[in-house]
């Protein structure tokens, strides 16, 4: 197996695991970070597919600006919690 093949297999597994994490994590801030991670992995695939301009845009706009938007919206929606136990001690409300 060539070196590029190994990199691609590892990255595909990582991206699919990150996508599952984005859908199944209880912590929605962590899910937003996982979505940005998927965008970064896809930009690596774009480099492998000889599309450097698309890779640049995906990394800067898709991962950077998109992740920033998701994080700001999470803060606005009251989903900004780093640790679940600490939040439940303070607020006492049910985790959503």
């Amino acid at each position: 197996m060539a070196w590029a093949d190994l990199v691609i297999v590892i990255m595909v597994v990582l991206v699919l695991v990150a996508a599952c994490a984005a859908l199944f994590l209880k912590n929605l801030l962590g899910a937003a970070v996982a979505t940005a991670l998927v965008s970064l992995g896809v930009s690596v695939f774009f480099v492998m597919l000889r599309a450097p301009d698309v890779a640049l845009t995906e990394a800067a706009i898709g991962a950077g600006l998109g992740g920033l938007l998701l994080a700001l919206a999470a803060r606005r929606l009251g989903l900004w919690r780093i640790e679940a136990q600490e939040e439940s001690e303070h607020a006492g409300g049910p985790a959503c």
Partner: peptide
């Protein structure tokens, strides 16, 4: 959850973009 719907939309969009570039390879 509405927020997770937005996350899933971003995932599907990244996959569709990758598929399109892959077709042009």
């Amino acid at each position: 959850n509405l927020f997770r719907v937005v996350l899933a939309l971003a995932l599907a969009e990244a996959g569709a973009n990758l598929l399109l570039v892959l077709v042009g390879f």
